[in-house]
Design a protein around this nucleic acid. Sequence first.
DNA 1: TTAAATAGCTGTAGTCACTACAGATAGACG
DNA 2: CGTCTATCTGTAGTGACTACAGCTATTTAA
Lengths: 146, 146
Amino acid sequence: MLSIGELSRATDCKVETIRYYEKIGLMPEPARSAGNQRRYGERHRDRLHFIRHSRQLGFRIEAIRELLALSDQEHRDCAAVDALARRHRDAVDDRIGALCALRDELDRMIKGCAGGDVAHCGVIEVLGDHRLCRNDHPLEAVAGKQ
Amino acid sequence: MLSIGELSRATDCKVETIRYYEKIGLMPEPARSAGNQRRYGERHRDRLHFIRHSRQLGFRIEAIRELLALSDQEHRDCAAVDALARRHRDAVDDRIGALCALRDELDRMIKGCAGGDVAHCGVIEVLGDHRLCRNDHPLEAVAGKQ
DNA sequence: TTAAATAGCTGTAGTCACTACAGATAGACG
DNA sequence: CGTCTATCTGTAGTGACTACAGCTATTTAA
């Protein structure tokens, strides 16, 4: 039986995060010691590994909930899992595209700025006037929403 | 003089967001009508354009605060602006790299999943076992923190 | 055995950049 | 004058944690 600290070290997941996952129902409530401390088994550890790895791959909590439900089924619906993973990959792809466009825009902006103490700062100018930009950059694709 | 709704349409920025920027001190308090409604001038519109465009380019609010302070100076410190923009571009670059690695990982995972009703679902397997992964994927670089 | 050090408990609030609402007032138009 | 839309303030919600306060449990050393 693992204490929450041992589980934390075993999964590289902070203690607070483990309790948070329990609160939102992503991790099941574990057994308790006589003094009311959490005691975890292997199943908990495996599940937390699954969750953490999914998060590292950028899946959202709600997607992970679905993945867990699918993986718990007797006869796994692999097609559904596959679809979820593909959707996520495509979303990541879109984000990469948006960020590349953004980087190019930033690059152009920086190149227009010579550096030094001048009244005509290219960067400031571009920031103040969208028309100096080559393309649109929708905020959503850039911000961390995935 | 523009009402908050007119400014909103002129800058493609929601009314609530304008009030939010005022509350956090990013936009100055405007004049008021007899009935206590906000009335904006050109300077406000220019400043909000600057803020929105900077946000679209992924700058954080605190960075925009700095950019605004720098752009307000009599003798602009263009080098400081340049450095800020470069730091931001480099951060975007790092994120692109992380997301590309992530997408490749997702691709490999999806390829290992044939689809259908099988006990050995490649995706679920990989998610449960980090060792089946090629590389590390630190959560921070992937999550939308910028 | 006991004291100290470490670990764990619950509950709440903070992060970021908004967004959404509720309940009130202002202004524009016919 | 009535109606409709716009605006007002203030608060709470979002996602996925993180941090803290004030307490209790457990472990280790003396």
